[in-house]
């Protein structure tokens, strides 16, 4: 169970370029629930994830995960509970290290690093089994340097890394954005499998309205750092891309934010 209470975060406070990225944001996420989050560029989606993961400390508000107040925990400590796929496909992996080395780093998420072997022999089997469902053939490339993979492949690898150890909260920031349509839909169904199988509490940001409607248990639209619409499962089921786009335009008009090209195309 994740509870986000009155979370606020401003950048550049006191300067001309001050931005209120999150403004008294409230959301409660049940265990095993996947919420799709949409919203125009700059509406604070990534900032929300950074605050949850601990990369940014919020100005005010509270984050309660499984009854524990983690608002001020440092990022590396939160890693034992939270895993994350970054919006930038290159941010989640180490290019100079191999596929298996990256996976091994993720397999030790939240554990102290000692002087045992960085990759245990028996881990490789586990890694291959985890990579195979992606259908990208990465399970045959364990010893390739990650820098040799494409952006979409690296993003897929990051998803596997994020779920290798079950997180209490999974954060996905446009985790299929760098992938072609076929790979993206495959990654999405794998995401849903992983979420269902492990009952992962998940926040998923996407700019793909159809994806937001088709997948997940709830749909949240953000605007100006707040929840603008929150569609529960039954309402979400009745949404169409067209009706959602209308709501989106409405939200953009009210919040005075322009609409992104990526959304119009979606």
């Amino acid at each position: 169970m994740l509870e986000i209470r009155e979370l606020s975060k401003a950048f550049g406070r006191g300067t001309v370029s001050e931005v209120q990225a999150l403004s008294r944001f409230n959301l409660a996420v049940a265990d095993g629930e996947l919420i799709s989050i949409i919203g125009s560029n700059g509406s604070g989606k990534s900032t929300l994830m950074s605050c949850l993961a601990g990369a940014h400390l919020p100005d005010s508000g509270a984050i309660i995960l499984n009854q524990e107040d983690i608002t001020t925990w440092p990022e590396h400590k939160r890693a034992s509970l939270i895993s994350r796929v970054f919006q930038d496909p290159l941010s989640g992996t180490c290019a100079a290290m191999t596929v298996e080395e990256n996976l091994a780093l993720a397999h030790r998420r939240g554990r102290p690093r000692g002087f045992r072997r960085g990759i245990a022999r028996e881990e490789r089997e586990l890694f291959r089994a985890a990579l195979a469902p992606l259908g990208l053939g990465l399970e045959k490339r364990l010893t390739d340097q990650v820098g040799l993979l494409s952006g979409g492949q690296r993003q897929a690898l990051t998803l596997i890394m994020a779920t290798l150890i079950r997180p209490a909260l999974l954060l996905l920031d446009e985790h299929t954005a760098a992938q072609d349509p076929k790979t993206a839909s495959r990654t999405m169904s794998l995401t849903m499998d992983l979420v269902e199988k492990n009952r992962l509490t998940t926040l998923m940001i996407t700019h793909n309205l159809a994806q937001a409607i088709d997948y997940g248990h709830r749909l949240v639209m953000m605007g100006q750092g707040r929840v603008f619409w929150d569609f529960p499962a039954e309402e979400k089921a009745r949404l169409t891309v067209k009706s959602l786009l209308e709501r989106f335009l409405e939200a953009s008009r009210e919040t005075g934010v322009g609409l992104s090209d990526s959304l119009l195309l979606a």
Binding site: A79, G92, C94, A104, A106, G110, G118
Partner: peptide, 17 residues
């Protein structure tokens, strides 16, 4: 391994704890 990742991608290795 953590040391190498620290040099190459501090953001990633921090998110891994």
């Amino acid at each position: 391994q953590a040391l190498q990742a620290t040099g190459e991608n501090p953001r990633m290795i921090t998110s891994l704890g």
